[in-house]
């Protein structure tokens, strides 16, 4: 059941933690930390599930998500969005952009893992 997960996140410590948890559960994990080149990275790596941070250097997660949804090759890609902003408005923005799951930092590792699992099965 192992699949590929791409993590787009700029905090090295968080990348390390997510990677560790996913790899331990058997996922292949690739990472990318720059917003401006994120969309190309997604198309190149064609992951089964995408974990996307909102506040990225260069380009916001919402922007990236919108672009992905417009592209037929990635329009159905399951996306889990992680954000350090917990306000209602941010959630609305994410849903509008076409997110599948939305989690506020700090999150529980188990929940994050469960979400990735569900998204890959859907």
């Amino acid at each position: 059941m192992a699949g590929n997960v791409l993590v787009i996140e700029d905090e090295p410590n968080i990348i390390e933690a997510i990677s560790f948890v996913l790899k331990r559960a058997g996922w292949n994990v690739e990472t990318h930390s720059t917003g401006s080149t994120a969309a190309e990275a997604v198309r190149a790596k064609a992951p089964d599930v995408l974990i996307l941070d909102v506040m990225l250097p260069g380009r916001s997660g919402y922007d990236i998500l919108r672009e992905l949804r417009e592209d037929p090759s990635t329009s159905n890609l399951p996306v889990l969005m992680l954000t350090a902003r917990g306000q209602t408005r941010d959630r609305e923005l994410a849903e509008k952009a076409g997110v599948n799951r939305y989690m506020t930092k700090p999150f529980s590792n188990a929940e994050m893992l469960e979400a990735v699992r569900e998204l890959s099965n859907a």
Binding site: E11, A17, I18, A84, R85, Q87, P106, F107, N109
Partner: peptide, 16 residues
Amino acid sequence: SHELRTPMTSIRAFSE
């Protein structure tokens, strides 16, 4: 919120 949650995310993830 962002500045506080970011380190807390690392702390929680690694402590778990």
